Simulated scan of single mutants.
Amino acid sequence: MEVGSRFNVIAENALLEGTIRTFNNDTREKIESSLSQYAAHLAHLYGGTVEVTYDRKTEPVVNEYKSAQLVQSVAEDAFGKDVVREEPPTMGAEDFGFYMSKASGAFALIGSGNAEKDTCWAHHHGHFNVDEESLKVGAELYAQYALAYLSQSEF
């Protein structure tokens, strides 16, 4: 939030920025509409005006069930049952949602943490590092998934 530049001056303008993340577009549309209405009412209450710019930078990532089942099966076959687990939905922003809005598929997470190599830091942490061995796992999973997908009788 930017509002003026001096402690003792009432600012003529203010800028408020933020992000809104949702698990589906219906909720996103409701929030966008409600946010615009709320801002307009608040500005009117104080005799001001408001301009709301709502940029949709990413799309929600929603795995298609059949694709998710396939990638789990491929991962189990390639690396063992103990490496596959379901993760709860997260509010991370991911460009993959744009692909998913055009075609069905699944977004699979590949762990890159290794305590022995000090690579267990969160992705946006200053010490983030990737255990490069995980890149091989990811490449193999994607190649095996592509083969399994193309081997299906219908896709």
Rank of each mutant, 00 (worst) to 15 (best):
M1N: 02
M1Y: 01
E2S: 14
E2M: 05
G4C: 08
G4P: 10
S5D: 10
R6A: 12
R6Y: 06
R6T: 11
V9K: 13
A11I: 05
E12A: 09
E12W: 00
N13D: 13
A14H: 03
L15V: 13
L16V: 13
L16S: 04
E17M: 02
G18S: 00
T19D: 11
T19P: 02
I20W: 01
T22E: 02
N24I: 01
N25H: 05
T27P: 04
R28H: 14
K30R: 14
I31C: 05
I31L: 12
E32I: 07
E32C: 02
S33Y: 01
S34T: 13
L35W: 03
L35M: 15
Q37A: 15
Q37H: 13
Y38R: 07
H41V: 04
H41C: 09
H41L: 11
L42N: 01
L42A: 11
A43D: 07
A43L: 05
H44W: 02
H44N: 13
L45I: 08
Y46R: 07
T49R: 05
T49W: 02
V50P: 01
V52K: 04
V52I: 08
Y54T: 03
D55E: 14
R56I: 11
T58G: 02
E59A: 07
E59P: 00
P60E: 03
P60S: 12
P60H: 07
P60N: 01
V61C: 15
V61R: 00
N63T: 06
Y65F: 10
K66R: 13
Q69K: 14
Q69C: 11
Q69S: 13
L70N: 09
L70I: 08
L70P: 09
V74W: 00
A75Y: 03
E76S: 09
E76R: 15
F79T: 08
F79I: 04
D82C: 00
D82N: 04
V84Q: 07
P88F: 04
T90V: 15
T90Y: 11
G92R: 05
G92W: 06
G92E: 11
G92Q: 11
A93I: 05
G97L: 04
G97C: 10
F98G: 05
Y99T: 03
M100F: 12
K102P: 01
S104G: 15
S104W: 13
S104Q: 14
G105K: 10
G105P: 10
A106F: 06
F107C: 14
I110C: 03
S112C: 14
S112L: 06
E116T: 06
E116N: 14
K117A: 09
D118H: 12
T119Y: 03
C120K: 12
W121T: 04
W121E: 05
A122E: 13
H123N: 15
H123I: 13
H123F: 11
H124E: 10
H125N: 15
G126D: 15
H127D: 15
H127S: 14
F128A: 12
V130N: 04
V130S: 06
D131A: 12
D131E: 10
D131Y: 10
E133F: 01
E133K: 14
S134E: 04
S134A: 15
L135I: 13
K136Q: 05
G138C: 04
A139L: 09
E140M: 12
E140R: 15
L141A: 02
A143K: 09
L147H: 10
L147T: 15
Y149F: 12
S151A: 14
Q152G: 11
S153H: 06
F155T: 14
